[in-house]
Write a protein that binds this DNA or RNA. Structure first.
Lengths: 334, 334
DNA sequence: CTGAAAGCGCTTACAG
DNA sequence: CTGAAAGCGCTTACAG
């Protein structure tokens, strides 16, 4: 059973495919098609259940009503939640979202961009990694809207939506210092992306600004994508060998591994040992005691991304790039 | 800067577009194109960075190398994880995945199926809801591979991959009974889908088989999609008004709400009060004490789904429908 | 008020 | 060993 085409509808209605096309695309009045014809054609369309072939439409028009979303890892709850919010909002404006995960692999990320390009997506939302600068520049030269989020790529002049990671991290460390902590550790990842680097700088600067020594031994950089057992081992080693009274975890999955270490070693969080985790997670609120976290306002980030995309999509002229920084909040628990 | 087309390549190479097409599609030898021509054309393709327009290819061939994945909610960690695994495995076989969330809304789900249809996806992976039977039957009549997962639709004869929810739930309750629990509650959702119904039946049957009374007051059906504050209130009410010594939560997000109630009311999990949650979540392992869970083998589910899809995609003839049941495991913690 | 025709970028049956 | 041409299902400039 072959799908109906515009030709079939035209045949049934005894009009040309041009007329059918105008009606489908809401140009009937503009093209002064008679009411009678409009009604007849619309009735046939509804009765037959005809749906235009979007592939053919895309080939002809060069756009697709699809927005490509490229994240680090869709199974990470931060990205999953933002993706879902973006999906909802885009959907309301008639756009669909295609997502894919880069796993911080430059080659895979390039392939994904190429795939999206060859599918003629109308716009790109990308949580980028270093090494993608050229590919993104090509999209921009091609006049495609590109919004970076979560992390910026300083060398590319495009739109960006994200939090102020430096100051959120700085603030966290300042809180520790004000509580009288002396040996504050940082557990972070080794990926060289802006938002991770900023968290590190926030840590270092807060220490130095408060006349505290920066000790390299207290900073643990975990290799991205290694399996969790190895991560747990490294964190355990840090906790075992160094005198520590506070830890900032730079990502939520690292914090989860860290909490597992505490559970295994029976080390308690309390006045002697404080924890702050970056990016909230259900596990943190439930934990006893509750884990303080830096929360990025997901709803606002998603909203801003979509707004920027839509304004670019509806304006023909190239808009100046915008950098929107949405403050993250430090939520202290217990 | 317009994208290159096959015509541009043909022009540069001084051959016909037919020849270029054969080379791109690996049919060069089969069509006995000379080595010299193959080399020349391939060199030009690489140098120019030409990528075939997939839209045009899809229009012509009727397929897209895209698999559509429809889940309840991509921000739910169960679906996010399965989606990511499916994405990885599909990617290795040259297929891309498009996901979307139904939010258990039949209308939205139908629209998504239509969208995928009009994009000519090659196959469908669907976590279905009631009311989609006809739409899915249409896909099957159209000879498209369809794999249902997580929940089955008994009235449609198609492939299905999922866990045995009845027996996992039965087993959980049996464990409670053997521990000597007398008043076992069930907190579940009100959506009428197979896997939720089975969890309920497992609960009820386990009680009856062990000569325990089934009390309606101990079963709380939470409205899907209501906000969490309302859920927490209802669960709190259940715990406050009924004498309960064990609870089975039928989904992980309900369990998380339930654990929040326990935290608020300062009720402890222990010999007097046991909990089992359906579908594992990072929060459960970290919780003090650890929360016992029913775990579905995500990796195996994803693997089986992809295997079924690929076998359907490569065989022209219609294969008999398969129902693959992968046992869930009950993990007791603490 | 409506239609015939070109063209988007491919693939492939057919011809030589 | 290689190419001219039809056709996938649309949209739209042009003509009447």
């Amino acid at each position: 059973m072959k799908a109906l085409s515009i030709k079939d509808i035209a045949l049934k209605a005894n009009v040309s495919i041009t007329t059918v096309s105008f009606i489908i695309n809401g140009k009937a009045k503009e093209k002064s098609i008679s009411e009678a014809v409009i009604e007849k054609v619309e009735k046939i369309i509804v009765e037959s259940g005809y749906k235009p072939n979007q592939i053919a439409r895309s080939l002809r028009t060069g756009n697709s009503n699809i927005i490509g979303l490229i994240v680090e890892d869709i199974s990470n709850s931060f990205f999953a939640k933002v993706a879902r919010l973006i999906e909802d909002k885009a959907y309301k404006h008639g756009y669909k979202i295609i997502y894919s995960s880069t796993e911080n692999d430059v080659e895979k990320a390039k392939e994904l961009i190429n795939m999206f390009k060859s599918r003629k997506v109308d716009a790109y939302i990308i949580s980028p990694i270093k090494g993608l600068e050229k590919d993104i520049q090509v999209l921009l030269n091609d006049n495609k809207p590109v919004i970076l989020f979560d992390r910026n790529l300083p060398d590319v002049d495009t739109n960006y939506v994200g939090s102020n990671h430096f100051s959120a991290s700085y603030q966290s460390i300042k809180t520790f210092i004000e509580e009288g902590k002396k040996n504050i550790a940082l557990v972070t990842t080794d990926i060289d992306v802006q938002q991770i680097n900023e968290r590190f700088e926030g840590y270092r600067n807060a220490l130095l600004d408060h006349k505290m020594p920066y000790k390299e031994a207290l900073v643990l950089k975990i290799h991205f994508n290694q399996d969790e057992a190895a991560t747990i081992k490294q964190i355990k080693h840090l906790f075992d060998t160094e005198e520590i009274d506070a830890v900032l975890f730079a990502t939520n999955y690292l914090a989860i591994s860290g909490l597992k270490v505490l559970k295994i070693t029976n080390k308690k969080i309390g006045p002697e040992f404080s924890v702050i985790a970056y990016d909230d997670h259900e596990a943190f609120e439930l934990h006893t005691p509750g884990i303080s976290t830096v929360q990025q306002p997901l709803e606002e980030i998603a909203e801003t991304v979509i707004k920027l995309i839509l304004s670019q999509l509806t304006t023909k002229t190239k808009l100046p790039s915008q950098q929107v920084i949405i403050p993250a909040k430090l939520i202290l628990r217990d």
